[in-house]
Design a protein around this nucleic acid. Structure first.
Lengths: 218, 218
DNA sequence: CAGGACTTAAGAATCGAATATGATGTCATA
DNA sequence: TATGACATCATATTCGATTCTTAAGTCCTG
């Protein structure tokens, strides 16, 4: 979303955020400025800008005079995140399906196609594609709701998506054919402009994903 | 919400945010680091931390190599904000009305009572109470949804509330008896545990407020 | 007069040093 | 031995100076 686009700054922002989402910076672990300076090659000031930003998005915990920590994970937090994602994403999908024009349909079909290719490969056992899968899944879900007409809604949603993604990355398992089927159901309903069915399919998709993640999560 | 509580930092954060919401830093105006340093007595680094934070909350626009600007306002943005507030706050209210215990009821009654006192004074023409009114209105709306059981939801909501508030402050007018009545309807329905009616009353309250603001806005 | 290259000034981005704070360990005293 | 004062250290916070980028003039040339 709204990049604070400079050179060192936005680069470290991207990298730290990515490392948190992909679990390379473990939940609840401490983020010492000096260590981060080594690791990311940026000065304390730049790092602090980044960390403050991530703190307000909820990926980092800022504690008074005690520094920064990766936001801890919990089952309860995951449930909250998933439910909020359902609330926002289904709402956005409804609007999008109502308003979407030809370009929107094209983007949805294209994103779905690309996601499908990757998912079939993943299903065939190629584990090296996790990073790609993440990108295509994101682009698919985004394409679906992009015609909702609310920048603010899309912006809130993107943060939620990333938070949810962190939990998925934590458990690391791929759901396989089920996810493929669910995606298909959503696309079909969306393209047929069946608002209710599309929203319900999406809700189910997230719900099932949540349950799956909760199960695997220790 | 989640304070990055230090001394200089959090103080300037609070002050700048307040100044944006209350219109003392006008929409779309440029935020030069030097000027801000004079005005808030903090160094560039500290200011940049603050501004980055406000940027990720959406109160400030950060443009690559061109600095910071107060996020501009627009009718369309206002509409988006109001609709999102309806979506999140009504959802939270439903949960809260379902789950709220005795303490919750007590807080709601208390917050409502205090808001009522202020609103009657405002209605009687005492304009000096704007800052107080803001606080009590916030505490009222928060009390209602506080038992929703989702920290994440409350956190998203609080940002939205503030964004909406900025528009209210922009038009400066007080809606009078109508608002008083609307608040009463919400409380009554909430205390009677009529989930649907409470949510609908709240939706109406925000909707009417939106239309009022849109009308006055230029 | 129009358009482009050069110069200059304003301001943003970045940095490492200086300061302040909280955590930890040590010692004296009851 | 338990407790509290004190010193020490690790680390967060804050700052102003330095470097880099962009925007605005200015001048030269066709």
């Amino acid at each position: 979303m709204s990049q604070s686009l400079n050179v060192v700054g936005s680069a470290t922002y991207q990298r730290i955020k990515r490392d948190i989402i992909f679990g390379e910076l473990a939940p609840a672990s401490r983020l010492k400025l000096d260590k981060l300076r080594e690791r990311y090659g940026a000065s304390v000031s730049t790092l602090r800008e980044t960390l403050n930003r991530l703190a307000s998005e909820g990926f980092v915990d800022a504690q008074d005079q005690r520094g920064f920590f990766v936001t801890p994970t919990s089952r309860n937090d995951l449930i909250e995140i998933a439910n909020l994602r359902i609330l926002l994403e289904c709402h956005a999908l409804r609007l999008s399906v109502e308003k979407g024009n030809t370009d929107w349909e094209g983007n949805v079909v294209s994103a779905y196609h690309k996601l499908n290719l990757i998912e079939n490969k993943l299903h065939a056992g190629d584990e090296s594609l996790k990073e790609d899968w993440k990108r295509y899944d994101w682009e698919f879900h985004l394409a679906l709701i992009e015609a909702c007409g609310s920048r603010n809604l899309l912006s809130l949603h993107s943060v939620l998506y990333d938070k949810y993604l962190r939990y998925q990355m934590l458990v690391l398992t791929y759901r396989g054919e089920d996810a493929i089927d669910e995606h298909r159901d959503i696309v079909n309903a969306a393209l047929e402009r069946d608002v209710d069915l599309a929203a319900e399919s999406l809700r189910l998709h997230i719900q099932v994903g949540l349950e799956h993640t909760l199960e695997v999560l220790e």
